[in-house]
């Protein structure tokens, strides 16, 4: 049995998240992964941007850095590059990472810097009251899309893969055992690892779109998020409306800090030769 109190900042509870929010589930899953991998609290740095998910650092007893909107990956790049010994985790949301922080997102992936990015996708700007985000599905309502969203949504896992990340996975807060495995795998990977985590926002998204209670939203995840292997075996008809989950991409490629270390060594060797 894991003692969560060993990892949380109990003095900051109760947390600010709404009843039915998935963010607390991710926090616990992350704590289990830290414990499983034996990562010391002193060696872990969590960096976040702005939004509901970005409040996670306040609740976990490691080195924590809450930054500006969209910029977590840029700050995290500085932390990791300055001290590669540290395990750096970025906690961010769909609006934070793929709208205002989109540039840092694709470039952190391109560099393949050894950062684990936990991107909570709730399809909406929750903290600011339910504005449309780059991942809001077409046709859904938001406070700034009252007549239905007319824009296509980003595939944020696909974006990270295309930009150069070495590990990409998608999980959700209903399938928690799978989520634990995905977060642990991401933390164990050397390189830029993304875990897109579908986490419902009953307050700003579910309610506005008449999706029912928080339990109904959980049931939606249960019925519609399907492991990729399983989904691949389904008929086209069965696949409709389903979201693939699991490890979507896992390759070995040069990591930024390691490449820089090699450059430093090369310069030393060149100097000796000279």
């Amino acid at each position: 049995m894991i003692d969560y109190y060993e990892y949380i900042r109990a003095q900051n509870f109760p947390h600010i998240w709404c009843a039915g929010c998935g963010d607390g589930i991710v926090l616990k899953s992350f704590i289990r992964s830290l414990k499983k991998l034996g990562i010391a609290k002193d060696d872990a740095v969590m960096v976040s941007g702005i939004g509901c998910s970005s409040r996670t650092p306040g609740y976990i007893d490691i080195n924590t850095l809450h930054t500006t909107h969209g910029r977590a990956l840029a700050f995290a790049t500085g932390v990791k590059f300055a001290n590669p010994r540290l395990k750096v985790i970025v906690v961010t949301g769909d609006g934070d990472a793929t709208a205002i922080g989109g540039n840092h997102y694709i470039h952190a992936a391109r560099r393949n810097i050894d950062i684990t990015c936990l991107l909570y996708n709730n399809y909406i700007y929750g903290m600011t009251g339910g504005q449309v985000s780059p991942t809001t599905p077409r046709g859904m309502n938001a406070s700034t899309a009252p007549f239905g969203n007319i824009e296509p949504a980003f595939n944020i896992s696909g974006l990270a893969q295309a930009a150069g990340a070495s590990f990409v996975a998608r999980g959700d807060v209903y399938h928690v055992q799978q989520l634990d495995k995905l977060i642990a795998a991401a933390l164990g990977k050397t390189g830029f690892s993304l875990v897109e985590i579908l986490s419902p926002c009953p307050t700003a998204y579910g309610r506005r779109n008449k999706m029912g209670t928080p339990v109904d939203l959980m049931n939606w995840l249960k019925d519609n998020v399907v492991a990729k292997d399983k989904l691949d075996k389904m008929t086209e008809e069965e696949q409709r409306g389903k979201v693939p989950s699991g490890v979507l991409w896992d390759v070995e490629k040069p990591e930024f800090c390691g490449e820089y270390a090699k450059l430093v060594e090369r310069l030393k060797t060149d100097k000796k030769k000279a």
Partner: peptide
């Protein structure tokens, strides 16, 4: 450590992150 970041905002962010590890940035 030297890094050319993806934009000016990112460069400022990286400098703050590096400084928090104790480096003069």
């Amino acid at each position: 450590k030297f890094i050319q970041m993806e934009d000016e905002i990112g460069a400022m962010g990286a400098v703050i992150g590096a400084s928090l590890t104790g480096m003069k940035a």
